[in-house]
């Protein structure tokens, strides 16, 4: 039996240097709801575990004003749910994060872990892509910022360089009339993995869509930003034809596989169905803002 080293640094610099020094033999631990499961299944055998939950920036929720927020990558779903301001500004992102697992899992699971685990079916990712969130990354070569959709590289793979840690997500200022929503299709009512997940972020002005972003999950190797769907919605009053065009763009964007969780035909169809349902929810919420 090989022993596993466990580190819980208090600063980001320590974490980054320990992570870089281990050169591939270390794993970052946020909530551990992916990592520990993978270790138990024998698919990952880290020599060192670096727990990032003791680092203040990783568990902070900062209200930047005007609906803008910065949340630490390791904030758990349960903690985020208790933040009233965040729920008001970003209900879609919050519902996506809160869909992860069960009550028990929510106590630990984080959006950073969800993104870095890089499952195409991760629930929070399409919502954060739709939100236009920016990821702050710290590594041995310093700090950089990228959009959420730039992080996943394929199932289980990210574009993070060796030694890099995701620090936080920054959500932009919310104009009046803006809101978002997320839905996923799962065969069961809970404790299941998304067959398709879809997030929509809308800004409405006098019934007209001024801005829109659509994030689509579980239908391709990575979560997609569907620009064609956004284009179909922007400038419309969400007339049937516009929404149908956006749904068609979502279906066209799908590059799914036939697997145990869904067929190509089914996933493609569902992407369009969800687009319509999510747009309706986001628009209703935006109307109230």
């Amino acid at each position: 039996m090989t022993d596993i080293r466990y580190l819980a640094p208090n600063t980001l610099d320590e974490a980054v240097s320990a992570f870089a020094a281990a050169s591939g033999a270390a794993s970052i631990l946020a909530g551990g709801t992916d990592l520990l499961v993978q270790m138990r299944a024998g698919v990952r055998k880290p020599g060192t575990i670096i727990d990032i939950k003791k680092i203040p920036a990783l568990t902070a929720i900062e209200d930047l004003g005007g609906g803008a927020f910065r949340i630490g990558a390791a904030v758990s779903g349960a903690v985020l749910a208790e933040h009233m301001g965040f729920a008001k500004a970003w209900p879609g992102v919050l519902e996506a994060i809160n869909l992860i697992g069960s009550k028990q899992v929510q106590g630990r699971a984080s959006p950073g872990g969800n993104l870095c685990n890089s499952s195409p079916a991760g629930d929070s990712v399409p919502a954060m892509v739709a939100a236009g969130a920016v990821v702050t990354i710290q590594g041995p070569n310093g700090k950089r910022e990228v959009p959420v959709e730039a992080v996943p590289a394929g199932p289980g793979r990210t574009t993070l360089a060796p030694g890099e840690i995701v620090v936080s997500f920054t959500f932009p200022v919310r104009p009046k009339g803006a809101s978002d929503a997320y839905l996923r299709m799962i065969p069961r009512t809970e404790m299941d993995i998304a067959v398709v997940g879809l997030g929509v972020n809308l800004t409405m002005e006098g019934g007209v869509v001024k801005a829109a972003r659509v994030g689509l999950g579980a239908v391709a190797p990575t979560v997609l930003l569907v620009e064609g769907a956004a284009k179909a919605l922007i400038g419309s009053r969400l007339e049937d034809a516009a929404v149908e065009a956006a749904a068609a763009a979502c279906r066209a964007a799908c590059k799914p596989i036939d697997d145990k969780r869904g067929t190509i035909a089914y996933r493609t169809k569902v992407a369009g169905v969800l687009l319509k349902r999510v747009v309706a929810i986001a628009a209703a919420r935006a109307g109230g803002n």
Binding site: P187, R188, T189, E190, M191, D192, I193, D259, K260, R261
Partner: peptide, 23 residues
């Protein structure tokens, strides 16, 4: 569910979908 090699492809409670309470 079986794969082409004749192996069970869903040997877990995640992908072998028994109903949960809320179902």
């Amino acid at each position: 569910l079986y794969d082409k090699q004749g192996r069970v492809d869903n040997a877990s409670f995640l992908d072998y979908r028994m109903p949960v309470c809320s179902d």
